[in-house]
Every structure is written in C-alpha cells, then in structure tokens.
Design a protein around this nucleic acid. Structure first.
Lengths: 216, 216
DNA sequence: TGTAATGTTTACCAATCGGTCAAATTATCC
DNA sequence: GGATAATTTGACCGATTGGTAAACATTACA
C-alpha cells in the first residue's frame, strides 16, 4: 500500500531531504517577495524546478510549506539576540548586536522579508511564535538591559523600546531595500551602504546610551 | 450616449465624490492589510458596501484604485519631513520630527502599512515616486542636516542614515504593531507604548547626536 | 532480478480571480 | 413630467487559484 505523503513516513530518504530542501529554498524566494497570500504554488514550483503536484507530495498544502519554512528560519533569525551576553561589556554587546543584525540584513534579506511580510499583515501564521518564544527571549534580554541601566553602565531607558529600535533600524536595510537604494541613488550603488549604516548606528546607539551624558 | 466611465467626465458629481471617497477608504483598509496581490476587488467591495461592478464603474482596474490611493496618501505621508526646517534649532527639529512621525504611526497606521507592503515587495507600483519626489525631498533635507553637522550644531554623521533610522524606528510601531503588542504583552495593553517610544527615541537621538559628546 | 514502496506526472476539479455586458434603476435638468 | 445622462446590479467570461486522482516511473532492498 502506498503511503500517500512522504511526510508521514518515519525514516526520511535521501530524495526527501534533497527535495524538501529545494522546495523550501524556492518557497523562501517566493514567500519573501510576495507574502503568503500573494504567492502561488505554481510560482514556487517553477522556481524549484518541479511540478506542482510534486511539491504537494512533499507538503500537503501551501500553509504547510509556509509553516515548515518559518520553523526552519525562526531559530536562526533570533540567534543574534540569543547571543546577547549579560556578563559582557554593555557597550560592546550592543555594538556587536547591531553589527550582527546588520550582517543578517545584508546576507539574509529574504528571511527578514519573510517575517516582515508576515508581521505586517497581522502575523496570522506566527502569532504563537511571537507571544511565546519571541516574547520570552525578549523579556529575558530586557531584564539584562534593565540591570545594566540600574547599575549605571548605560543610561536609564526602556529596554523593550531599545530592542525595537535596534530591530527596526537594522532590518530596515533588508525590508526596505528598494527604498534605501532609490533614495541613496546610484552614486551609492555598491554594498557600502551597510558599512555606512553600521558606522552611523553604532555612533547613534553608543552615543545615545552612554550613561555619563550631559542630561539624564 | 452613456459615457462609460465616471472618471472620464470633466465635472464630478456629488455622488462621484462620495463614492470614490468610500471606495478609497475601503481600499486603504484592504490594501494595507493584505498588500496589492493579496487583496481582491471583492474584499474591497464588501468593505465599501457596494457591488464589485459598481467599484469598477469608478475605477476601471484594481491597479487604478491602488494608484489613486497612493497618489492621495503620499503627499500627506511626507508632510512631516517637508516641515523639517533648516532655520530651526536642530535638536528641536529632530525632536519634533520624531514626535510627528510617531503620531502618524499611531493615528495613520494603515497608510504606513500601505507603503510598507508596497516597498517590501519591491515597490512595483511606486518606483517612480521613490526615485523622484521622495529622493529629491530627502536630498534636500539631508543637505540641511549636513550643514548642521558641519557647523558643529550636531555630531558629524551620515544624514541619509539618520533619516532612515528615524523612519524605521517610528514606522515600526505601525508596521510591526502586532509584534510590538505581542512582545510587550497585555500589561502594556494601552496606547502608552507610543509615549514610552517617544521618550526613548528622543533620548536616543538627542543623546546620540549631541555634538559635545565624550568621543567624536 | 523481482517486487513493493517511493516518487513523478498528466489530466482534472471546484472555487475564486479580475473584469465585461446589457439591462435595470436612479438622479438631473428643461 | 419627461427625456437624458448617470449609476447600479445580476449574470456571466476566461484565466488562475489551491488541491486531487490515478496512472506511470523510479528507487530500494530482499
């Protein structure tokens, strides 16, 4: 008797691994560029170089593909925040967090846009991840920042909004890439904008959070 | 002979004004929540409370509706940046620009998401606006900021990335609203997050841009 | 090498998509 | 009030959507 879906088998064959990899790679391309509703299985099939029913042999529905993609990407995406170290030097931790997030915006813009599309449209498929794992991780790191502020290592500030501001400024270069390029024009055509951004953001955050500023 | 499309008549009737208003209001709802490709004329028709052919009587295509909506909203959306005054006090100008942008994120989140969706998906419908009017406006204001930095009124920094960082941090509260809510949790359920954000961002930018900092 | 499980494809389905058409209804103005 | 223009709608169209059924091809393994 034929088992109808590969996903149901316990042991995964070599072909399964390869094809699922291929499909998710194509799905990342399409979903990140068009959002969930704006993407079609046919598009993904074409990018993946296989027939539509063949995709649906590995993932029963469009939703299942999207879900698998989110699951695969989310952990990696939160890695920089997870690396945030309570024991480290605050200034250096923030600086390297910004740098890491900017590198991810440069090297993995599709992943950034995948989440941006999802959140922008109300996060219908990742609500649980936001309220669960994400919130817990942010709560934990916010506590670290709060302790730094309390002990005077950085200026007193709302740790949540600090994290939001680092997220937004760095991911901006992935999510709003076409706008950034359009405004900067072709004179800044190269990848130098990421280095410029890194310089500016480090200056902004390090300067803005320095405890011994001129005003509280 | 019946003129096939209302848009072609020169004088606009009262009904035309009202209905086009109704339609664009509904279109803003739907496009901002689902993006262009993810939105359907039927959805917009339902929100607008009229039949689909009736929508298409006022706007010949889905694209035409989207275009009209963008045209109507774009000017207003850029108003805060336009108000940026070269003659004013730098610190106060930046502070009030942040405040205005945050107010817009709070009061007009749909407009923010409309553009975010569009830019995120490669700006297929507003490329010209980005490279034209937007770039020119930003170029002009960047020159103002550069002058401030040169005369020592604020720290030396890349004016374009400064503008990007204000855009991203403020619009974040509209575009990524569900994420912000999820992370802050229900204990911060009210609208207080906008005031908290304003406090944090003013502190960050004013502190980060102050010229007489401890290091260059 | 045979055979059972796995993988792939062609043909197809009902639902929905953007959009049209002609007929019906309503508003405007003399 | 009647003619004429403006507005509204139900029925419909071809294309595309997500997804299925079943025949066919390939692989793994005894």
């Amino acid at each position: 008797m034929t088992i109808p879906r590969a996903a149901k088998t316990l042991r995964r064959t070599r072909i399964q691994e390869e094809k699922e990899e291929q499909i998710l790679e194509a799905a990342l391309d399409v979903f990140s560029a068009n959002g969930f509703r704006g993407s079609t299985i046919d598009q993904i099939a074409e990018v993946a170089g296989m027939s539509k029913p063949n995709l649906l042999y590995y993932f029963r529905t469009k939703e299942a593909m999207h879900r698998a993609l989110i699951d695969r990407v989310l952990y990696t995406w939160l890695e920089p925040l997870r690396a945030f170290d309570a024991e480290g030097n605050p200034e250096e931790e923030i600086r390297s967090y910004i740098r890491r997030k900017l590198e991810m915006a440069r090297d993995f813009p599709r992943e950034s846009r995948l989440f941006a599309n999802e959140v922008l449209q109300g996060a219908p498929h990742i609500e649980d991840e936001l309220k669960g794992p994400l919130k817990e991780l942010v709560d934990e790191k916010a506590e670290v920042i709060r302790a730094w502020a309390k002990s005077g290592k950085i200026v007193k500030c709302d740790p949540y909004h600090l994290i939001f501001s680092i997220w937004s400024t760095t991911q901006h270069y992935a999510d709003f890439d076409v706008q950034v390029r359009a405004v900067l024009g072709q004179e800044h055509a190269g990848e130098g904008r990421f280095e410029d951004a890194a310089r500016f953001l480090e200056q902004l955050f390090i300067g803005g959070l320095r405890p011994n500023g001129l005003e509280s």
